[in-house]
Amino acid sequence: METRSRLTTRAGLAALAAVSLLALVETASAIVAPYRAPADQDWRAAAAAIRVGFRPGDLIVAAPAWADPILRVHLGDLIPAEIAGRMDDERFQRVWEIGQRGATSAAAAGGTVAEKRRFGALTVRRIERQAAAVRYDFVARWTDAHLKERGADGTILDCPLVGDRGLCSDAGRNSVRRQLVEVDTRVRMALLARPAAHGTVVLEYPDVPLGRSVVVAGGLHNVWLRKEAQRPVDVRVFVGGIEAASFTTRNEDGWAMHRIDTSARAGQVAAVRFEITSPAPQARQFALAAEARF
């Protein structure tokens, strides 16, 4: 009984000490924390430093990524929509990262730090990294593509380019265009295709200079449509008339990346065809981006 009482006392003392210490730490933290956040002058100084060294083709990112809107207030003119909505980070050799609270960006991973400076609560790093050489950007070159809609009975409908989009038969409901999309609650620049009812949307690029791989990214556009519909979208990729890959994209897959090995045909020019279908195309809008890379 004596032992138990002493243990209880010890536990009580430990609890008292822990709670008292916690109360002091929490109070101090609540008072100090607001002053640890980056100030506007930190951002201005960091932005000025980046502007001095910035070269066209550089990527500028915030770490953590949630600081991106503030980053764009200061450097948004150097981040056009095509860069902000990039397919991935692989094509960028130089990455400027404005970090805070010790965070780093995935875009900086694998590179070497060529420059590092502190501006108050912010750290600017310039990362040099091995960039992927892009031979062909399927989004930028989307007007090269022939757009068709193939019916279940094999009939082929051409979808000519009208204005800013490739337009299929039924009064504009089915179309493909290059635009900013939202996939997995992130903005991307992509081709937006609506799968056809009982048919296949076919996007064929006749002359693609191949490298060692074709990297395809895809996802389902529009948070409200993802809420409304659950059925997947299927994509088949043909290189030189041969099926090279197929994948299925569901709501929860986000912006999914697929790498197709074309090293056997590197240096050749071949047709690349994307075939997009869905078992239930209602409220399905598929966003697609791809690059042929060395």
Binding site: A67, P69, I70, Q100
Partner: peptide, 19 residues
Amino acid sequence: WDSYGTTKPFMVREREGVP
């Protein structure tokens, strides 16, 4: 971005650096 032709906000309201 599409309608205003820029990715650059005019201002961001933030708390402790969080937009």
